[in-house]
Structures are given as C-alpha cells and as structure tokens.
Amino acid sequence: MTGKPVHIFELANPKRFMDVSAPVVPWLAAATTVTITLGLILAFNTPPDYQQGDTVRIMFIHVPTAWTAMMAYGLMALASVVSLVNRHPLADVAAKAAAPLGAVFTALGLITGSLWGRPMWGAWWVWDGRLTSFLLLLLLYLGYIALSDAFSDETRAARVCAILAIVGAVNLPIIEFSVQWWTTLHQGESILRRGGPAISPVFLWPLFLMAIGFTLLFLLLWLIRIRTAVLKRRTWNLMLRATT
C-alpha cells in the first residue's frame, strides 16, 4: 500500500512525461552521436566485399534505414492501438509524431537501395515482392500524414489515422518474409537466417552500430517531436483559457 508502483501508463500523464523525458534527451543525443560516429569509422575501414566490392558500404546505411523505417511503423501502430483502446491523448500524439520520421527513413531505404541496385543488379528499380512492399510502406506513411491533416475534428482524425496505421501494420510481415515467400531479385535474409548470419564479422559490426545509431536517432527525434506536441497543446489550452 505504500507508494504506487511506477506504471508505464503514468507516463501517459503529459506533465509527468515532460518531467521524465527532459533529462533523457541530452543523453540520447550523446549516445546517438557516439554510435553513428563509431559506425561510420568502421564502415569506411572494412575491406571491400569479395563480389560487391566497395558497394558493400551502401549496406551499412541501406539496411539500418530500412530496419528503422519498419521499427518506426511498428511503434506507430502500437501507439495507435493504445490510442484506440485506452484513449490516451499522448498515445495519439506519439503515433502522429512518428509518421514523418518513419517516412524519411523509408524514403532513404528506397534511395540507398536504388543506388546499390544499379551497379550490382543492373537496375535502379524492379517490381519484385520486397521492393514493392517496401514502397507500400512509404505510401502508408504518406497516407497517414495526409489523413491526419484532413480532419478538423481532432478526435475523429485520431481514430481514423489509428485504424489506417493498424491495418497497414499487416504490411510489416509481408516486407520481412517477401524474400522467402516469393522469388525476388532482392537477395534473401542475411542475418536472421538458418545456419547463422551469412555476413563476415568485419561487415557485421559497422552494420549493427549503424542500426543502433539510426534507432537511437529515431527515438531521439521522436521524443523531441512528442515534447513539441505537448508544449503546443499546453500553449493552445492557455490561449483558450485566456479568451474565455
């Protein structure tokens, strides 16, 4: 009975969220910078790949941006579930804050992939299962952003956007397993593969560091954008109170 246990939903209280997240921001920023810097140093000190030569270095940003894009969508969908089920305004704010960040990571995954595909495959773009489902991810993000701006009624916008985000989450396993289910030009899974990763440790380290670095960067920017939205809401409430 003495003292409430700290529950995750206590963070759903905006005031509490602001207090707890404020000191996290600088530490997260430092961790992001260190990880990405180390990742870049390793990325440019690997030998070339036995077949792909120096284009293997594109993998160190292509794969992490793609992973981050998918993780961001997963988090956006999760926040949307909380928004729909628990009706916490902060969950809705969190989902909305993730969308533009996820869209940029998705676009970068597509662009870096294209710059890798041209010299190795011989094509900037092909309509295979992996590339097409990943393009759909970008369309889902853009659709979500467009939809969130289309309603003047905020609670309705939140509900419709949450539904889109949750239904769209079905695309995540399709992206992941596309290279197993169908014949594709995109190569198969290198990391989560039967028989262990097919990537030499010398390439695995920069890949993991960049993946962690981009994930931290996403979390940092996500936090900043959620904080921004809370501040805006506070300003809005004060202005309302002042006029009435």
Binding site: P48, D49, Q52, F203
Partner: peptide, 9 residues
C-alpha cells in the same frame, strides 16, 4: 544480376 546474401572480404 541477383547476388546472394553472403558478405565477406
């Protein structure tokens, strides 16, 4: 060209 999922020096 379709490359495989192996990467090594």
């Amino acid at each position: 060209a379709k490359h495989d999922e192996k990467y090594m020096p």
